[in-house]
Write a protein that binds this DNA or RNA. Structure first.
Length: 455
DNA sequence: GCATGATCATGC
DNA sequence: GCATGATCATGC
């Protein structure tokens, strides 16, 4: 392998060169002495430096020194280099380990930009992405590159995706303009997110129009959107139903949804079923969900745009008196694993900060029909995060104190609680201290969700 | 009416 | 076989 032999003026040459490293690791291509030199650096940083692998690739594979300023890595060709980790699932499918971090958000200057001439587009419109297979506790030198592709944000993705990314960018920038950079959350947006990017959880930056300092953040492609790109790169396009099956509807997701529901709101489920051509002899239990699927033009519970944007659709049936009585569950946690996590990197924190919900609200009546009341996107507001942090920390503390049977109840916190969620009372897992306990998960309290729906 | 624990239906 | 979404059962 001849290193550094490419034309840095030409994106084709850069790509062709980079693709030679597919199925190879740094150790495969660098000499013994160089590997020794890198090993010394690894020891020095003890794995504490994020982005270290990317720096190594820039330096040793491409022979460019790493830079922090807002200019592309391959300046002349306008190409930005990204190295990012993928995992291989049991099903052999590749999936991204993380979001793909793009450029840092400069809160002070971004508010004066517009999309077409934004520094975001300037820096990220052409990305050379090198996906490598990550395995825990493996030496960086052994990571093997698996997929190497050039991604042109302006021409390689669909018009709808680009329109959505533009809308996401504008949503983020508008929030900063309002002096709310400290309230940014990845759940605010769909494909492009404002991801936290700090050397430590304490670091803060000043923002315009507010005296409150905000976490440093970078524009990033969400994990779920990156997953879609990966499948596309390896030739496996998503086959789920798309919201764009009807060409007269808007390109961006929220507008598309609002438009679809417009004419059905305040109608009964029977009326809507009739309009959509649904007829039952025996009404199935999930009839509300089936109605919504049909309304969205979906043939299963999965919808392309929702998968890409990490949106979960929840059908809510309010009681006759308007009360919401059921809380909302999150995935089961494993006692042995949650005690090893830290809050900012915990599953629950990630779910709250990255996920978006689409609530479709029905109201039950005295009769045997429901009324479709409203459709609302919702993501967890970051101003409430400290309350949930308490619940999470308390949960971890109690498990560590061998009290997995006494986790925070709904009375202990107004936003969240812990409750069983197994198949039945016998569906138990290891507590990590020699006993078994029924599977449990975090829930968002029904009352809290109801308040959110009313706001 | 609500807290709490439990379980069902469905589909991946 | 299991996670997920949705709902039920019981008792205070």
């Amino acid at each position: 392998m001849n290193l550094h032999e490419y034309d840095k003026m030409s994106k084709e040459s850069i790509l062709k060169y980079a693709q030679k490293f597919v199925d190879k690791s740094l150790r495969d291509v660098l000499g013994i002495n160089t590997c020794e030199e890198i090993n010394k650096k690894i020891l020095k940083y003890k794995g504490r430096r994020k982005g270290f692998f990317g720096d190594l690739v820039e330096e040793y594979i491409f022979g460019i020194s790493n830079n922090n300023y807002a200019q592309a890595d391959f300046k002349e060709a306008g190409v930005e280099l990204k190295t990012t980790a993928i995992r291989q699932l049991k099903s052999k499918k590749y999936s991204p380990k993380d979001r793909l971090t793009l450029s840092m958000i400069d809160y002070m200057t971004v508010i004066n930009e517009n999309w077409e001439t934004s520094s975001f587009l300037e820096k990220n419109k052409l990305l050379l992405i090198m996906f490598y297979l990550y395995e825990e506790k493996q030496n960086l030198l052994e990571y093997k590159f698996k997929i190497v592709e050039l991604l042109n944000l302006l021409s390689h993705i669909s018009n709808a995706d680009l329109a959505q990314i533009q809308q996401d960018w504008e949503k983020i920038v508008n929030k900063i303009r309002r002096g709310e950079a400290h309230l940014l959350s990845e759940g605010d947006t769909l494909y492009l997110g404002a991801a936290p990017k700090a050397s430590n959880s304490k670091s803060r930056r000043s923002q315009p129009n507010s005296i409150i300092d905000a976490k440093p953040r970078a524009f990033s492609l969400k994990t779920t959107y990156l997953n879609y790109l990966i499948q596309k790169f390896i030739g496996k396009e998503y086959t789920y139903s798309s919201l764009l099956n009807n060409k007269t509807l808007p390109l961006t997701v929220e507008e598309n949804i609002n438009k679809r529901f417009e004419s059905y709101l305040n109608k009964t489920n029977y009326e809507i079923e009739k309009e959509l051509g649904i007829e039952y002899i025996d009404r199935p239990k999930n009839h509300r969900r089936l109605l919504i699927n049909k309304l969205l033009g979906a043939t299963s519970n999965k919808i392309e745009e929702f998968e890409k944007a990490n949106i979960t659709l929840r059908v809510i049936a309010l009681e006759k008196n308007g009360r919401l009585i059921e809380s909302i569950s999150f995935p089961i946690f494993k006692y042995k694993e949650i005690v090893k996590q830290i809050w900012e990197e915990s599953d629950f924190y990630r779910q709250l900060s990255e996920k978006k919900f689409l609530f479709v609200v029905f109201q039950k009546t005295d009769k045997d029909y429901d009324i479709l009341k409203k459709v609302q996107f919702w993501n967890f507001p970051m101003k409430d995060i400290n309350s949930v942090k308490w619940v999470w920390k308390e949960t971890v503390k109690r498990i560590k104190n061998k009290k997995a049977n006494k986790l925070p109840t709904i009375k202990e916190n107004i936003i969240s609680h812990v409750r069983p969620h197994g198949r039945n009372g016998e569906d138990k897992i290891d507590t990590g201290y020699g006993t078994l306990e029924v599977k449990k998960c975090f829930w968002l309290n029904a009352k809290y969700i109801q308040k959110q729906l009313e706001e």
